[in-house]
Nucleic acid binder design. Structure first.
Lengths: 109, 109
DNA sequence: AATACATATGAACAATTGTTCATATGAAAG
DNA sequence: CTTTCATATGAACAATTGTTCATATGTATT
């Protein structure tokens, strides 16, 4: 670094969240960053659905859907409730829907 | 599908955006879903910065930063302007900052 | 208990991704 | 026009990721 950016760098440094937060933030978006998961999340933003309904909707294997729902659950993006043999999934909180619609706004510019 | 979810599936189907939009949406979030890129975006949300300033801030090689800035540029998440030898990068539009802060809100629950 | 159905899990594979190293371009100054 | 500095690019490698197949839970019904 030869030119004089030190002051700005130092200041931006003070504005940065801690590493852990930035890691968690990237992790959050990484979950959204997959076509299958986005389709699942979008579907769930319209209605709670059971695994086999999602599988039929997306025309995919139950196993693949179940794997992804597990990922979404671990990331606390969805909740589930059991009703007999069937497990219904829904979005965990309103932030999830908001992030999706914000993203939608961005791409449709 | 033995049980009676057909009506709901059909309705949710009508609510789904076209495949291309969902693909673009996932693509958008995928870009956010990397620690290095999130750190870059967060830094740029505070101040426009040149490549070597970002490199110093994140304590990474210029090459790695340049590669990622290229990805961000192709995804239209950042703009750049040249001033002599130096190239300054900044966030492309306000949506980018909004998405980051929405994400931040979500993880700090 | 045995069967059927919905969902979950584990292992394995192919595909994608981010970084590094080496090298190339672009721009100003000597 | 050669040197120096800032940035960009290409190829290659290691690491991560999503899906599939096979199999295992879990829950109700007979």
């Amino acid at each position: 670094m030869s030119h004089n950016h030190e002051a700005i760098i130092k200041w931006v440094e003070t504005q940065m969240p801690k590493e852990e937060s930035l890691y968690d933030l990237a992790e959050l978006f990484r979950i959204f960053g997959d076509t299958t998961r986005i389709r699942i999340l979008y579907a769930l933003s319209k209605n709670e659905l059971c695994v086999c309904a999602v599988a039929e909707l997306l025309n995919m294997q139950h196993s693949a859907i179940s794997h992804q729902l597990r990922v979404l659950k671990q990331a606390r993006l969805v909740n589930c409730r059991r009703e007999g043999k069937t497990v219904y999934y829904s979005l965990a909180d309103s932030h999830v829907g908001t992030i999706i619609s914000q993203g939608m706004e961005h791409i449709s510019e």
